[in-house]
């Protein structure tokens, strides 16, 4: 099985292998098999389109967790310029599971905060696989307060398997750290746009996820408990995760219907990882557009709209 492809993508993977083989043959023998390759490419593109037009909720969870899926830093380097990373919560440590700093979005200064899972094994360990501890949320809080003071809009990128469930996390008050952020973000006097770029898992995601505009990438996912966790509780086995994912409605389609998510940004065929630059440019475009709308409002209007929106959840 090709690790670059998910299980439901294996027919596509098989085609890609054939294309690769033909390319090798072509360069070895000088025979013109370009036509054949072109046909296969077309077939692969069509197949990808077909497979991706029929994804189940569980398939989407898998795409959202794809090992090659772009992470926060991949977007930060493409969408923004002049990113100056800022470190530390000023109390305990610098949590590498959350990155944040000041950058420019088409020239305008903004505060960017994102959860980062890490690409290499070493990086993943250093970033605790994107599971923030209290100091991560407190760093985010510090940066958001700074953004408020200097009139910078806040953009958060959500991608986490959850806040870290560990002894040290509890000792330093992970619940309080998240709760504090929810409270602060509800009244921060600057626009906040939250983007779910991969996996938005429960309170760990919401801890940087309260704002004026909530948008999801097409194949990202957002849930109150992981489908595995839900299945474990209800069916007593994580094998039922696909059923749990379906029941909870973890996709942008369902969440937009429920009025929780405001918009969905279409991903390149086969997922964001197949064309990161294209995904990043679509994200950039969306952010610029939305910021314009939010920045046209007075701060009082903005805060009242945000508050009313929070109160409306579930109504």
């Amino acid at each position: 099985m090709n690790p670059n492809f998910l299980d439901f993508e294996q027919p596509i993977a098989d085609l890609e292998v054939k294309i690769e083989e033909l390319q090798l043959v072509g360069s070895d023998n000088d025979i013109n098999i370009g036509d054949e390759i072109a046909t296969l490419r077309e077939k692969s593109a069509k197949l990808t389109e077909k497979v991706y037009s029929n994804l189940t909720a569980w398939d989407i969870v898998k795409v959202a967790r794809h090992p090659q899926r772009p992470y926060s830093l991949d977007y930060i380097s493409r969408v923004f310029t002049e990113f100056d990373e800022l470190h530390g919560d000023r109390h305990f440590a610098d949590d590498h599971a959350i990155v944040g700093g000041i950058a420019r979005l088409q020239g305008e200064p903004v505060m960017v905060i994102g959860q980062e899972k890490g690409r290499t094994v070493q990086d993943k360990v250093a970033r605790n696989f994107g599971m923030p501890k209290p100091e991560g949320y407190r760093k985010a809080l510090r940066l958001m307060e700074m953004a408020e003071r200097f009139g910078l809009p806040v953009i958060t990128l959500i991608d986490t398997p959850g806040a870290y469930p560990g002894i040290d996390s509890e000792e330093r008050g992970i619940s309080e750290a998240i709760a504090r952020n929810l409270a602060l973000m509800s009244r921060l006097r600057t626009p906040i746009i939250c983007v779910v770029i991969g996996e938005g898992s429960s309170g760990g995601a919401l801890g940087i996820g309260v704002g004026d505009h909530l948008v999801m990438l097409q194949y990202s996912t957002y849930f109150v408990i992981s489908p595995e966790g839900c299945a474990n509780i209800i069916w007593k086995t994580s094998d039922k995760a696909p059923e749990a994912a379906e029941a909870m409605g973890v996709t942008s389609t369902v969440l937009q219907e429920l009025g929780i998510v405001d918009a969905t940004i279409e991903e390149p065929k086969g997922g964001a990882h197949r064309d990161i630059d294209l995904m990043a440019s679509r994200l950039e475009e969306h952010l610029v557009q939305q910021l314009q709308v939010l920045q046209a409002m007075s701060t009082e209007e903005l805060l009242e709209q945000r508050y009313q929106r929070l109160l409306s959840y579930g109504n």
Binding site: S186, R187, G203, L206, V224, G249, Y313, G314
Partner: peptide, 19 residues
């Protein structure tokens, strides 16, 4: 769990009113 993300958003809602 059974109210999925609507439940999660109650966290934001209650925190906002407390603020």
């Amino acid at each position: 769990m059974q109210e999925a993300l609507i439940s999660l958003m109650q966290m934001a809602k209650t925190s906002a009113v407390l603020e």
